[in-house]
Design a protein around this nucleic acid. Sequence first.
RNA 1: GCCGAGUUGGUGGAGUGGUCAAUCACGGCUGACUGUAAAUCAGCUGCCUUACGGCUUCGGGGGUUCGAAUCCCUCACUCGGCA
Length: 386
Amino acid sequence: MKFNLLKTDTKTRARRGELHLAHGVVQTPIFMPVGTVGSVKAVSNEDLDALGAQIILGNTYHLHLRPTSEFIKDHFDSLHNFMGWKKPILTDSGGYQVFSLGLRAEARGEGPQLVKITEEGATFYSHIDGSKHLFTPERVIDIQRNLGSDIMMPLDACPDGNADHMAIKKAMEQTHRWAQRGIEYWNKVKGESLQNYFGIVQGGPFADLRKESAQFISSLPFDGIAIGGVANGGESKDKMTEAVEYAVPYIPHDKPRYLMGVGEPIDMIKAVSQGIDMFDCVLPTRLGRHGVAWVGDEKRGFDSLDIAKSIYKTDKNVLDEICDCPACRNGYSRAYIHHLLKEKEILGIRLLTLHNLRHVLSLFERMRQSLEEGRFSEQFKSYIAE
RNA sequence: GCCGAGUUGGUGGAGUGGUCAAUCACGGCUGACUGUAAAUCAGCUGCCUUACGGCUUCGGGGGUUCGAAUCCCUCACUCGGCA
């Protein structure tokens, strides 16, 4: 893989780059829509192309359970062929799923027996049929090799962000040992593979742990460095920003940096100013399905509208006057989309999903453009980190 | 005109003597959602009160009863059937 740094902002750590992958070049900073089970919910590949998506996510956990990575490998050779998506794909490792399954089980009082983490890996039970599975650093690489993604993520231990220092340190150290094993395995099997393998920094909200983790993960020959565990368990926005701040200085400049699971437009602008290149988040798609439209921009401010509320019943405006998404460009009114939501017509959530994805993707287009033209910190001054 | 069935909160519709301010669904309001077990989930939804609690309700009026949305009488209206 090649990561070209094209330009660096003079006032912030923001950078404009180019990620060369087997299925194409990704312009950074970039937002990656999430397509967990091999589908960005409610939209097609053609939609994603038209919206300007350059790379999407798939998930090891879900695709392993169904239809299984072996099925995809044997019958279609790759996830790309299976779903018909020609641009790059990043596959997440399932570490986060193991974490969130455990949290859900705990919330239901089922205790931790649903997920068990040992030195070997993470044992968990399928949410589909209850069958028992073991994810190890090696197994998770094999699954992602079967899927043929452009970027693979390693199995990591992803603790509750509100856990104490000792628990988060323990999870971080586990993540490091698994990272080491993953790298050793990958070096053994990768051969001429064009796939890339990123590392994940953990350490929760703690400066010492984030530094230690960033240094350790950066010392391994990963193709890029991700920062994980910043959007789990409802930490405050400040802690999110601080966690990035603690880690970034110890991540080398010549590797792409990926902030996992973030997020909201204003959080991503801030993180770009902190030197992050890549983002993914379910919010634009999930909120779209839940009736919410993201609107606004850095000039007017950002806002979100709950279109299902009755105040929009007679609103003839499009979702966002300045938006160039298919819903806004073709004049679909808030009143009509409100009606579609009330009727539970699938077109409603589809239009909102298209709109929210475009909202985010066009924000990144503006950030890249402003970086190229040297006015990033001016254009986004209200939203960048101090 | 006669016979029968019915009239419950924004809507549909339970309830057929006390545990009923009244199941439930829809609608309404509020909130949540961040590497997707989510086109999902949670709370509120007669009036007053932060709460405890209090108050007025089940077509109108009257009655029986310690006690009625539930039983009786009557009036009004709705829907069937017969004329």
